[in-house]
Nucleic acid binder design. Structure first.
Lengths: 157, 157
DNA sequence: TGCAACTAAATTGTGCACAACTAAACTGAG
DNA sequence: CTCAGTTTAGTTGTGCACAATTTAGTTGCA
């Protein structure tokens, strides 16, 4: 029995196997990012936040949460760690004291150059041609939407 | 946006996007399992361990770890929680006192019936036909292997 | 036989995810 | 104007993941 095969043929439904494959693939990818991001002292979720800010600086916590599908329970402590590392600042907005604006520091902006070394590694590591990458990405998006819709439609007991 | 339009820069962005898609999809799937497994008082990783034991009872922690790609740092506390819930027993093997054998209790075996209600939900939630499921599972396995091989081949600083 | 090297599981510490809740600020219908 | 309801962040508690280390048990071989 290999790591990708939880049981004998036919005893585990293919649907469950795809979910396990997804779970394994996601962890493998995160593990590679961990290795690649170690010199930058970033975790993968922190890298995602930095990508969002490099793309568009000065976002609210709410906006970052919408972009990454993460809530304040995950983002608040993560952003505090990025602040402590000197990569971002957090400040209450004057016009709406509820919201907090996250901005890159010079150091955070400068890290971008280092981070540009990451994607080429990912491309080589995936080992798929461009069409396959595009096709898989589309499938992942469909799957996410479909699964979330199904979950939201379940009776809320 | 089609693959033909993408230059080198575009493909790099796409690689990161596939990884993010994978991360989002995996979390969505886990979220659905969370809802479906709530009546069974199981988390998704706990469900995976139970699946492995329903398939083949009486496994060492090491064997479960190999099947699920999880180390003892994750499994030890998880198995203690399953034991506390009355689903498994943990006992040192007499012939090798280093290893611990995990066995289903009657209650753990009985939970199988409840668990059989889960996979049909997953199948409907994924919203893919069988060929697509098979194709995606193959891609996920390939991706996991490729990414792990790439990571293991990186210079070990 | 003695003991260094190895193995299996557990432990420790960090950082996500996420549910549930709280605090503070804002909004709008009456 | 007021205050009930909403919004935005943050807090608390649980449970993975995983690196690093520890403990206990086993094995090989000089």
């Amino acid at each position: 029995m290999t790591s990708q095969d939880l049981g004998e043929k036919g005893s585990l439904l293919l649907d469950d196997q795809l979910c396990f494959g997804l779970y394994s693939a996601s962890r493998a990818v995160t593990s590679l990012y961990r290795t690649l991001l170690e010199p930058l002292d970033l975790t993968y979720p922190q890298y995602l936040v930095m990508l969002a800010l490099w793309e568009h600086d000065a976002q609210q916590v709410k906006e970052l949460g919408a972009a990454l599908n993460l809530d304040s329970g995950t983002l608040s402590p993560l952003l505090k760690r990025l602040e402590k590392a000197g990569l971002v600042t957090r400040e209450r907005q004057a016009d709406d004291e509820r919201s907090v604006r996250i901005m890159l520091t010079d150091q955070g902006e400068a890290l971008r150059e280092q981070a540009e070394r990451i994607p080429p590694h990912i491309g080589r590591a995936l080992g798929f041609d461009l069409d396959t990458i595009v096709r898989l990405r589309t499938s992942m998006d469909q799957l996410t939407e479909s699964v979330n819709a199904y979950r939201d439609a379940l009776p809320t007991t």
